[in-house]
Design a protein around this nucleic acid. Structure first.
Lengths: 150, 150
DNA sequence: TTAGATGCAAACGGTTTGCAGGGAA
DNA sequence: TTCCCTGCAAACCGTTTGCATCTAA
């Protein structure tokens, strides 16, 4: 069986975006694909300003307005997730298409770690039952510091 | 045994605030106590602007700067909790001193429900162990809608 | 008496919007 | 050719800050 390369994965991502744009009668502009590529070329979380600077450094100038516009589309088709980690600006994360996870944030540095605990599913079911609601999404974030050495 | 009245509870709150102010050499200004009273006189979550307007309606004029300043103190002594429910403005909640809880937000209306599931404690322990960290606080919020009638 | 608090208004910073020009379909 | 999209800059809005004035201690 062939190993799945990073390029293969991005091709899938690109295809998802294209299908989304076509289905919603949005234009397939070069800006949108370049932004998509830039986002998926880097690991970790990002905010609009850092993405803007990164693209400028890569000699691809887009306006902030277009970044906000495109992020909106990427959120809508599920390729990007939005977080508001207690700050007053939004942070985003590219979808891995692989595994769901939540976050631990170091209070001092702002560094982000990811984890997954299946018990969150149990809590979700409990809440849906309790309130007779349908949960569309959720956010679970822990904040803390390194454990002090004894 | 005497029933505990709302006034008794507020007296306790007031005392906690006073002790906090004294311990940290902060002045006990009338503004600070009036803001405390206003916050604890209303149920549910609030933001700075609505608190500002509420106080103005009650004929007690404070500046927004003082509201922000005082909220900071109330957060510091644990009488108020801050939330950032995906919006770009902060929402606050008075502490109940009774029971810990998390939130369910109706996507359409923004209405807030509260619940508690002890499994969150298990997840917390798991994360502390996994990353060798100490968790100071956390946020768990579900977003969704009413379950459609069949 | 004086250091800390308040009120006001200006500044700040992330996000949104209006509009003229450009380009995908 | 059409009208959606982009870029730019101004507007927006929640929050922070600077400063003169006031007041708790």
């Amino acid at each position: 069986m062939m190993k799945k390369t990073a390029e293969d994965t991005f091709e899938t991502i690109r295809k998802i975006f294209t299908e989304y744009l076509e289905k919603n009668a949005h234009r397939k502009t070069p800006e949108r694909y370049t932004i998509l590529k830039e986002i998926f070329a880097t690991d970790g979380h990002f905010d609009i300003e850092s993405l803007y600077i990164r693209m400028k450094n890569h000699k691809y100038r887009v306006s902030r307005a277009t970044l906000y516009n495109t992020i909106e589309l990427l959120l809508d088709c599920g390729l990007v997730t939005k977080h508001q980690f207690g700050t007053n600006y939004a942070q985003f994360e590219k979808s891995t298409l692989i595994r769901q996870h939540d976050h631990f944030i170091f209070i001092d540095s702002g560094d982000v770690l990811e984890f997954y605990d299946p018990r969150i599913e149990e809590i979700k079911k409990y809440v849906e039952n309790l309130f007779k609601v349908q949960i569309i999404n959720y956010s679970l974030t822990f904040y803390g510091n390194s454990k002090p050495k004894k």
